[in-house]
Every structure is written in structure tokens, then in C-alpha cells.
């Protein structure tokens, strides 16, 4: 009775949709969960604010809380000018947060446990920074790679390091989220499978299964934190990168 902890990340084709450039596009379990995440986010924000209550209901204050939370994050890292990216950052945060939270429910699929998804999102941020940075600052955007007050003889080295770190941003940005979600879900699955394996061994196994059960409960709580924290980390890094595009002069 081998329990495959990797199986939960399997992409399952549900329905062939169309073919683009010879590649078959399917409606997949991942796609369903993406759309469900979008739906839940929109319902949370729109369904709870129809009353436009002055004194918010619990659900309305949840929507307002997320609004204020992301707005404050942007203001504190990228300043008031960063608010032009508010819808973008807010969409990223809510999409990652909601899909991560859904992924914690047993038998569900975690959208951000696939590198292609996190890479696409981080590249979206990367190119937004790059394009907006050059659009707003022109060639002054290159100041980002030239810190002030550096002696000339080590400047080439510094610039090289800065360029390298800038280019590696999307990698670390995407792998952090992907790896955290992947590792957390594998760990949960492994410990949960210990319970069933021990449980199959009879009374002694039942007693022994208490430890992995406790660990699974604790890990679920931890994963709940990680699901939020990684969404927040992705968001705040996005804000920091956007700040570079807004104010490249360090």
C-alpha cells in the first residue's frame, strides 16, 4: 500500500479545449482550481460589499481588511506612487493566498505548487518592473545597478553583481513560493500516510499512529501559516521590486 506523496501534484486533463500551435490545451484540475480561486476572491470582495455598510459585517470587514493590508504593504515599501500598481499587487496577493488556502483542504490541488505557474507570475512582475522602469526613468533606470558612493575600481564588480542579482530575482521569487508549497504538501502527505500505514497494523499500530497524527495536525497549522506567509512574501517582494522601478536611485 504505497502512498505516493507526489501524486497530489499530478495535472489531470479533464476536457480538451483547443489546440494552439499544435499543442493541445486541456481544461485541467489546475485550471479548475485557478478559476475557483478567482471566483472565491471575487465573491469575497464583491458579494460581501453589496450592502456598502458603514459599520461592516464580518465578511465585509474581511474584504476591507485585505484591501487595507495590501495597501499598507505597498505604501510602506514603495511609497504613495506604488499605489498605481495596487490592483496588480492586490490581484497577485489574493490569487496566491486564496489558491494556497484552497490547496490545504484535503483532496484539493495547489495551483502554486507548480513551478510554471509561479515562474509565470514572477516573470510578469519582472517584466512589469523592467518595462515600467525604462518607461518612467528612461536610461536612468540603469542607476539601479550603480550604487552611489562606491570606489571606481570596484564599480565593475559591483555592477556585475547587481545585474546578476536583478536577473536572478524571478528565479528566487518563483522558486521560493513553489518550493514552499511543494515541500509543505509532501511533508503533510508523508506524515498523514504514516497514520494509515500504522493503522493497518492493528492495535499497536493504532497507538503508534498517535504521534504522526499529532504531527499532521501541527503541520497543518504550520502550513496554514506558510500559505499566508508565502503569499505575503511574494507580495512584499513584488512591492520591493516595483519600488526599484519607481525609484531606481537606491
Amino acid at each position: 500500500m504505497a502512498v505516493d506523496p507526489i501524486h497530489q501534484f499530478q495535472i489531470q486533463n479533464i476536457l480538451p479545449i483547443t489546440t494552439i500551435g499544435g499543442t493541445q490545451i486541456h481544461l485541467t484540475n489546475s485550471a479548475v482550481y485557478m478559476l475557483v480561486s478567482v471566483a472565491i476572491t471575487v465573491i469575497l470582495l464583491l458579494g460581501t460589499t453589496t450592502g456598502r455598510r458603514l459599520v461592516p459585517t464580518r465578511m465585509q470587514s474581511l474584504g476591507e481588511l485585505s484591501y487595507e493590508f495590501v495597501a499598507n504593504t505597498i505604501r510602506s515599501t514603495a511609497g504613495e506612487q506604488g499605489m498605481r500598481f495596487f490592483p496588480f499587487v492586490f490581484s497577485l496577493f489574493m490569487f496566491i493566498l486564496v489558491s494556497n488556502m484552497i490547496g490545504l483542504i484535503p483532496y484539493t490541488f495547489t495551483v502554486s505548487s507548480h513551478l510554471i505557474v509561479t515562474a509565470a507570475l514572477s516573470l510578469l512582475v519582472f517584466f512589469t518592473v523592467l518595462i515600467y522602469g525604462f518607461y518612467k526613468n528612461g536610461l536612468h533606470f540603469f542607476n539601479l545597478f550603480v550604487p552611489k558612493g562606491i570606489p571606481v575600481y570596484i564599480l565593475p564588480l559591483i555592477v556585475f553583481i547587481e545585474v546578476l542579482s536583478f536577473l536572478s530575482r524571478p528565479i528566487s521569487h518563483s522558486v521560493r513560493l513553489f518550493a514552499n508549497m511543494l515541500a509543505g504538501h509532501i511533508t503533510l502527505k508523508v506524515f498523514a500516510s504514516f497514520i494509515t500505514m500504522l493503522g493497518a497494523m492493528g492495535a499497536v499500530g493504532w497507538a503508534g499512529a498517535i504521534l504522526p497524527l499529532g504531527l499532521t495536525v501541527a503541520l497543518t497549522a504550520l502550513e496554514l501559516l506558510v500559505a499566508f506567509l508565502q503569499a505575503y512574501v511574494f507580495t512584499i517582494l513584488t512591492c520591493i521590486y516595483l519600488n526599484d522601478a519607481l525609484h531606481p536611485g537606491h
Binding site: 481544461l27 485541467t28 485557478m34 478559476l35 478567482v38 464583491l46 490569487f95 505557474v117 510578469l124
Partner: peptide, 18 residues
């Protein structure tokens, strides 16, 4: 390809609605 296709649709939809 399928994941990117749906990610673009889902995220674009989310962005517009938000």
C-alpha cells in the same frame, strides 16, 4: 501550455474584476 493558458485567463479575469 495548458497551465499557462488557464493562468493567463484566470489572472486576467481576476485583474479586470479587481
Amino acid at each position: 501550455a495548458s497551465q499557462l493558458f488557464w493562468l493567463v485567463i484566470a489572472f486576467a479575469l481576476l485583474y479586470v474584476l479587481i
